[in-house]
């Protein structure tokens, strides 16, 4: 056997991250989910923005309260976050479905390192995706709104883009944690849907309004909207600053990752 592999260069955590990055972009499903996120984000924002001048013409007072960042946040929460959720879930839970997890753990036998490497490969990409999609959505929404609605400042545009990038990071971390803990794409997606969407509705119905702002989905919207803005999910203005919202959602993500890491360390490869 001719062996031209040379002395070890890399490996360890940097090698594991490079490996995960290669894996991430070498399956079609990753590209499809990114495309789906872009189509949903831009499609929703464009449609909703087009409606604003029409509302204003008909003298609808609500037209004046609509802002381009608000449209972008709605596009994320009701549509674009789901392909992102699917991407992160497939990235780890999908490996249990295909059996590829056995390869992954054979290449990188230090269990905690696998999860760290997946986070390091996926989360910066999600941050970039959030920032770019927000920029594009705002650039699309402002001309379509034609001067109606709340005027957009450059500062607000940047803050919204970073906040949505941050939301994608925390959402991705949450999904990676849940996916690692449950080892099943269907199970992980179900749990994430319930946590993000069903839980706020359930709490509202039960009158537990005090906890609403501390649920992951609501905290995510609060993060994207910023303090004082009306949150449609709670019907109340956002009660805390963006960094508090990031901390609340970050705790959920950390808990999910902790559960995932514990399962990954203690169980056989599957």
């Amino acid at each position: 056997m001719t062996a031209t592999i040379g002395p070890p260069r890399g490996g360890g955590l940097p090698g594991a991250v490079h490996s995960e990055w290669t894996k991430l972009w070498s399956v079609r499903s990753s590209w499809w989910t990114v495309l789906a996120a872009a189509v949903l984000m831009l499609g929703y924002t464009a449609l909703a923005a087009t409606a604003v001048p029409v509302m204003a013409e008909h003298g609808d007072p609500e037209a004046a309260t609509v802002s381009a960042p608000g449209l972008a946040v709605n596009a994320v929460f009701f549509l674009a976050q789901f392909p992102v959720l699917a991407l992160a879930t497939l990235f780890i839970a999908g490996e249990y479905g295909t059996g590829a997890i056995r390869s992954t753990l054979q290449w990188v036998p230090v269990r905690g390192r696998v999860l760290t490497a997946k986070c390091a490969a996926l989360l910066p990409a999600l941050c970039g995706l959030g920032v770019v999609l927000t920029g594009a959505a705002l650039a699309l929404a402002v001309p379509l709104m034609g001067g109606a609605g709340v005027p957009l400042t450059a500062g607000e545009a940047v803050r919204t883009a970073l906040a949505i990038g941050g939301y994608f990071v925390l959402l991705g971390a949450f999904a990676l944690g849940v996916g690692t803990a449950l080892r099943s794409v269907a199970g992980a997606l179900t749990v994430s849907f319930v946590a993000l969407l069903a839980l706020p509705m359930l709490c509202s119905a039960l009158g537990l309004t005090a906890v609403l702002d501390y649920l992951p989905g609501v905290a995510g919207v609060n993060l994207m909207l910023g303090e004082g803005t009306l949150n449609d999910l709670t019907g109340q203005p956002v009660p805390y600053a963006r960094w508090v919202a990031a901390l609340v959602l970050g705790c959920w993500s950390a808990a999910a990752l902790g559960a995932g890491a514990a399962v990954l360390r203690s169980r056989d490869a599957g």
Partner: peptide
């Protein structure tokens, strides 16, 4: 869903 070369590339990169 991963092609053979990139499967092995990911493998190689994990171990330098």
């Amino acid at each position: 869903g991963r092609d053979a070369r990139r499967h092995l590339l990911a493998m190689a990169r994990s171990n330098g």
